[in-house]
Design a protein around this nucleic acid. Sequence first.
DNA 1: CGTGGCCGGATTGGATCCAATATCCGGTGC
DNA 2: GCACCGGATATTGGATCCAATCCGGCCACG
Lengths: 255, 255
Amino acid sequence: MPDRPAVTAAISPGAPAAAPGDRSAGGAPRRLGGRSVPRHTLQTLVTARLREAILSGRLTPGARLQQDDLARELGVSRMPIREALRVLHSEGLAELQPHRGAVVTNLTPEEIEEVFEIRAMLEARAAALAAPHVRDATLERMRGLCDEMENPGLDDAGWLARNHAFHTLIYPASGWPRLCALIEAQRNVTRPHLAAATTLTARRPGAQREHRRLLDAAARRDGPRLAALTEEHLRTTARRLIAYVAGRRPAARRA
Amino acid sequence: MPDRPAVTAAISPGAPAAAPGDRSAGGAPRRLGGRSVPRHTLQTLVTARLREAILSGRLTPGARLQQDDLARELGVSRMPIREALRVLHSEGLAELQPHRGAVVTNLTPEEIEEVFEIRAMLEARAAALAAPHVRDATLERMRGLCDEMENPGLDDAGWLARNHAFHTLIYPASGWPRLCALIEAQRNVTRPHLAAATTLTARRPGAQREHRRLLDAAARRDGPRLAALTEEHLRTTARRLIAYVAGRRPAARRA
DNA sequence: CGTGGCCGGATTGGATCCAATATCCGGTGC
DNA sequence: GCACCGGATATTGGATCCAATCCGGCCACG
C-alpha cells in the first residue's frame, strides 16, 4: 500500500490512557435506557486514540500529524481530527502552526529539564499531602505493580505503563483533584520522551529500588520522607533522560 | 432586539488578554514580505475574544456559551467557535457537555481554594527564582502600576487588570517559561471570580500595602522574602474571595 | 551562475449542510 | 394526582465542499 508511511497503523490498540483535562467524558457510564449508548463522541474517541499513540511512543516527537492521513487511518472525517489536535495542543502534546500543520511536540533538553523541575515541585507536594491518607488497598495495588515491574521479561512499554500507574496511585489520596490533574498533564508531556529513551531500560533496577523505598515511606504514612524520595526519584530520572536526549541530538532543534 | 440576552454584546472590546497555552500565535510577528499579514487565523481571534470576555467578567461563571449565538455575535460560522470552546475548555475556562453545550466554568468554593493553594505553591517558587534576576526596568514598570492602582477613581476592571499585570511582571525573570505559563493558566481560572466579587473593592488598600512590600522585596532581590510575601498575599486574597463566593452561594452547585 | 519572482500542487482553515441527541412539552395510564 | 412515555423543537456533532495559505520547483533576469 503506497500510502504515506508517517502514521500508518500507528494508531490502534493500547489502553485509553488517562487524560487530565477530559472533564467532558469522564463522568458516569450512563446506563439508563437499557443499552449502554456510545456515550463517547467521535472527537473524544479520536483524541483518546491520538493521545495514547503519542504517549506510548508509537507517534514519536516530531512526527507530522496530517489531518487527511489521520482521518483515513481512523475512518472519520477531518473534523473530529481538527478538534482533537487542538485539544492535544493545549495539553502540550502537539504543536500547531497555522496553515502548516501539526507535529508531535518535540521538547528540547532544557524544556524537559524544566518540566521535571515543575513535576518535582508538584509531585513532592502531592506526595506529602497524600501520605497520611493512603489506604491499605492502594498500597496493596502498588505492591502488585512493583512486583510485576520486577519481572525482567516485561517489555519496555509494559514496564513504563506500570511505572506510570504506580506513581499515579498515590496522588489522589492528597484530596486535591486539580493538583492531580496538573501532575498528570506534566507527566504526559514527558512520557513520549521516556518511551523513546530505549537506553533507560538499564535504569530499571535502580528505579525499582527507589520504588520500594517509596512504597515503604507510603506504608509508614511518612509524608516528608515520601516527598523527599519522590523529588529525588524524579531528579534521577530527569538526569538520565536528559543525558539520553542530549546525546541523541547535540544541538537541540525545535520542531 | 428580542435576541437571547445571554451573551449579546458581551464580546467586544478590551485587551487581548494573555493566553498561557497559545504557543501557536505567540511567536514572532512575522515581518517578512513587507506587509504584516493577518497572521491570526479566525479561530485564534475568536478564542482571544471569548477568553477576554470570560476573564474580564463580561461572561460570568455559569453563563451559557451557545455556538449559534456566539457565531452571530462575532460574525463567523460555528466552526471557529467550536474549536475555540474546546481550547477554552482545556484552559479550564469553559465546561463542555456532549450534545448539551458549553458554559463558563463555575468553580465551587472548595475548588477555588484548591486553585489558590496551587497558585501559592507555583508563584512562591517562581518569585523565589525570579527575585535575583529582576531588572531595574521591570521594577520601574511595577512601581508605575502600583502608583496607578493607588488612584481611588480607578474602576474595578482597571484595577484588576493592573493588579494582574503587576504580578505577571515578576515571574518571567525566573527563567522558567513553562512555569510562567502554568501560573498564568491557574491565575486565569480564578480571574472571572475575582472580577465578579465586587466587594473586593474594599480590599484594595490592604492589597496595595502588600504590593508595596512585594515591590520592596523585589527591589532588594530578596527571593525568600518575596516568596513568603507572595504566598501570604495569595492566601489573604483567597480567604476574602472564598468568603464572598460562599456567601453568595451557601450550597455550592456545580454547573 | 546565483537570485528573485511566479505558478501549481498539497494542505489546512472556514462555511454550509445533514444527522444525532438532548430538552421540553403534552398525553396517557395507573 | 403522579409517573412514565412519545413526539416536536432546539442545539450540538460530523461530513462535505470551497477558499486561503504555504511549499516546492521552474523560469526569467541581472
